[in-house]
């Protein structure tokens, strides 16, 4: 499939240059919110929105920000956007916002955001920066959704809160794997994804 050059920033982060498993950014939240599918999806949407907007703002300001204080400027822009996202979630999705607890606030220190601002938004025009933000947000989201899918399916037997493993399985001795919900298995699940991805790439 041939992809026009202007869309490259949107497409490469999905697999070849994935922010989580190739660039190794944003691991903290990718692991912590993936015990269930629903918070993972909400987190993806929040990070994508913040990342795209922050990329556009910083890219528009890139010629006026003095290099020596750029980190503080970036932090303030991102923090302001995250406050908006936090308030919106508290207003419209209170339960999920409670489940995500501190991790919404931690979008500020999500390395994907700082990494993309430094590496892309500071040297590119707003439109490619916007596409790069959306692309990296979705690339992050794909990993989150895959990890959360397996952890929720194997750990609680549900998907998005609905029971998918039928009752007769439990009656014949199937049991949920409680370890999948605990933190260490998130790391091992991501390691398996990295394994498959590198295998395909080579």
């Amino acid at each position: 499939m041939k992809i026009s050059k202007s869309l490259l920033p949107l497409v490469t982060p999905l697999s070849k240059d994935n922010p989580v498993i190739v660039q190794v950014l944003g691991i903290c939240s990718a692991l912590a919110v993936t015990a269930k599918l629903e918070p993972a999806i909400v987190m993806t949407i929040s990070v994508t929105a913040v990342l795209a907007l922050a990329n556009v703002i910083i890219s528009a300001l890139r010629n006026t920000i003095p290099t020596s204080i750029r980190i503080i400027v970036q932090l303030v822009v991102v923090a302001a956007l995250v406050v908006v996202v936090d308030q919106v979630l508290k207003a419209f999705a209170y339960d999920v916002s409670k489940q995500l607890s501190v991790f919404i606030g931690l979008i500020i220190t999500n390395c994907i955001i700082m990494g993309r601002l430094e590496a892309f938004a500071l040297n590119n025009r707003p439109w490619p920066a916007f596409l790069d933000g959306i692309g990296n947000g979705l690339g992050y989201g794909i990993i989150l959704v895959i990890v959360a899918f397996f952890r929720e399916l194997l750990g609680s037997g549900t998907l998005l809160g609905c029971q998918v493993i039928p009752q007769w399985c439990y009656e014949h001795g199937y049991a949920n794997c409680g370890l999948m919900i605990l933190p260490p298995m998130a790391l091992i699940t991501v390691a398996c994804i990295i394994w498959v991805h590198n295998r395909k790439a080579s």
Partner: peptide, 9 residues
Amino acid sequence: IFAYFLGMC
């Protein structure tokens, strides 16, 4: 690190 995955990067 092990319970909350903070500072993983």
